[in-house]
Design a protein around this nucleic acid. Structure first.
Length: 260
DNA sequence: AATATCTACAACCGCCAGACA
DNA sequence: TTGTCTGGCGGTTGTAGATAT
């Protein structure tokens, strides 16, 4: 692979894992749990680097992993999530139980990327027409004064923050029901949304627990900003629910505001 | 049947942020 | 405050197997 190794790996195995190595790793983790990846190989009797062990476990050996046969629903959800979040594979994987970020990334690169590229010329034409029609709804992004006339969009990288979020945003057990054209919530949840009950739950409703983390990560110091942000997002979310026929445009602006 | 090319995906890499001393 | 360690992420590459010539 050309590049220098990130850590000293003299004498360590590389390349595909053997079934014996898999068995050793699985046995060790079942007995001692995950974590301490750096020292794990030694303790488990493996001649692998910790990173390699972690990857193998996370992507292939974990018992809750589903492999192969991405369903049309999953396919659809991946496309939607990618249009909202970009290449945030771990976030997308978080919405697909049993799927790993690596699998989704591979799936995207080999299947969906190509599929969408084929559709792109058509979609571009459609979108250009729509943009002209919907000029009033344009989301205005800040452009640096000295910038070229092109609009620069900076997509934030995911930031990991481990903190108890329940004090900020209650986390509930939420689900998304998919049909071929729209994202809807269960009736009960829609009712909740309409009555503004459980305001803070809307993002979980849409993306679940991981999204709560990312939302807070946008600016964890500025609570005032957050509450304004939450309100704005909630309004847009309600619009999404109420205007299903128009949801494509709204989804665009919702996504843009997520990334702004 | 042999060879070249393509596809899918497992595995590796560097980078980054949080935790901790 | 600073430096180091660790875990996690997304991008990239190597290669086995499938397909085309």
């Amino acid at each position: 692979m050309g590049r220098a190794p990130c850590c000293s790996k003299v004498g360590l195995h590389r390349g595909p894992w053997t079934s014996r190595e898999d068995a050793l790793l699985t046995k060790y983790i079942q007995a001692h749990g995950e974590g301490q990846w750096r020292s794990l190989p030694k303790r488990a009797g493996l001649l692998r680097c910790g990173k390699s062990c972690r990857l193998r476990w996370m992507n292939y050996l974990r018992p809750d992993i589903k492999r192969g046969n991405i369903t049309p629903d999953e396919d659809d959800l991946i496309i939607r999530m990618h249009s909202l979040l970009g290449n945030r594979w771990s976030l997308i994987a978080g919405r697909l139980p049993g799927r790993t970020d690596n699998e989704i990334k591979n799936y995207w690169n080999t299947h969906l990327g190509k599929k969408l590229k084929k559709q792109e010329p058509l979609e571009k034409k459609k979108k250009n027409k729509k943009m002209k029609k919907n000029d009033k709804n344009k989301v205005i992004t800040k452009v640096p004064e000295d910038s070229d006339k092109k609009t620069l969009v900076y997509i934030p990288k995911a930031i990991r923050i481990k903190k108890n979020l329940s004090s900020i945003i209650p986390i509930t057990d939420n689900t998304i029901n998919l049909d071929s054209n729209s994202i809807t919530t269960s009736q009960e949840e829609e009712q909740k949304a309409e009555t503004n009950e459980g305001d803070n739950d809307i993002f979980g409703l849409f993306f679940g627990e991981q999204y709560h983390e990312d939302l807070v990560n946008i600016n964890s110091d500025d609570m005032e900003y957050q509450s304004g942000f939450l309100e704005k997002m909630y309004e847009e979310y309600l619009q999404l629910l109420k205007n299903e026929e128009n949801h494509e445009n709204l989804l665009d602006s919702f996504a843009e505001s997520l990334l702004a």
